[in-house]
Design a binder for these strands. Structure first.
Lengths: 136, 136
DNA sequence: TTGCGTGCAAAGGTTTTGCATGGCA
DNA sequence: TGCCATGCAAAACCTTTGCACGCAA
């Protein structure tokens, strides 16, 4: 049986900020600073603990850069499509695609592996690919 | 113009260990301990610096867990096929697949995005999926 | 001889833990 | 009232940096 959960101002502030930024990856620092701008203050510990809780509940995508973790809330709509992320500019492309679903099914039936569509796929967007091409 | 590179015992030891374990993710600690078992010793700094160098050269896959980085050498053969990793047991499945290549081409031409096939795709292998199913 | 590589010690920065207090239900 | 949540300070942790020395070419 799950523990009962309390609704607190701190958690509401954090969740609201996360939900308004489902296209970005946010650090704990970003969250703290944003809340500070609202003339409020939340202890870092609280932010860390709440994010860890959301992570366990599978509600966050996480990326790590230079030892710092960045969090992205997985919105409900995003559970029904896929995501590409440009390694260069960081842009995230949301897309629906029959081919992709077919491929996932194929891998499931033929290769006996269930792809977790929560995960982002990395590569280069057109702009960045062109830009990189020029430098060579 | 690239810097000239020196060949040193330390680097040879590290590279050898990495190349013998292209199916695992190794931490700096793993590397240090392994070398210690060979009755040799390499400073942690050296290991970190060399791994960072390899990372910049795009020769490693990296994963982070509980604040520690895990490294996997990308062997030459692995550049020609794809990788699935089970989120649960950690097993890596190497596979070649026409469907997958078709999908990559489709995403490149239709969605204007070049997937970086270096990246591993996450999900659940058959065993772990079955095991999880039982628990529900 | 040149300048890249190594390794120690110290610093750096993020995340976690302990513990007392606060506050939701 | 019971128990989850908060927040401060301190600890823990891995990784990086500074600097002098070692060593490959």
């Amino acid at each position: 049986m799950d523990k009962t959960e309390y609704k607190t101002d701190q958690r509401e502030l954090i969740i609201e900020f996360l939900k308004n930024n489902t296209d970005k990856y946010l650090s704990v620092d970003d969250i703290e600073k944003h809340i500070f701008k609202l003339n409020k203050k939340i202890g870092l510990t609280t932010i860390y603990r709440f994010l860890n809780k959301l992570e366990k509940e599978n509600k966050l995508r996480i990326e790590i850069n230079n030892h710092t973790k960045y969090y992205q809330y997985i919105s409900d709509e995003c559970r029904n499509h896929f995501h590409l992320k440009c390694e260069d500019c960081g842009k995230i492309i949301h897309f629906e695609c029959e081919e992709f679903i077919k491929m996932i099914d194929h891998i499931e039936t033929e290769h006996k592996f269930s792809i977790d569509s929560k995960f982002v796929i990395y590569g280069l967007c057109l702009d960045c690919k062109n830009r990189k091409g020029e430098c060579r």
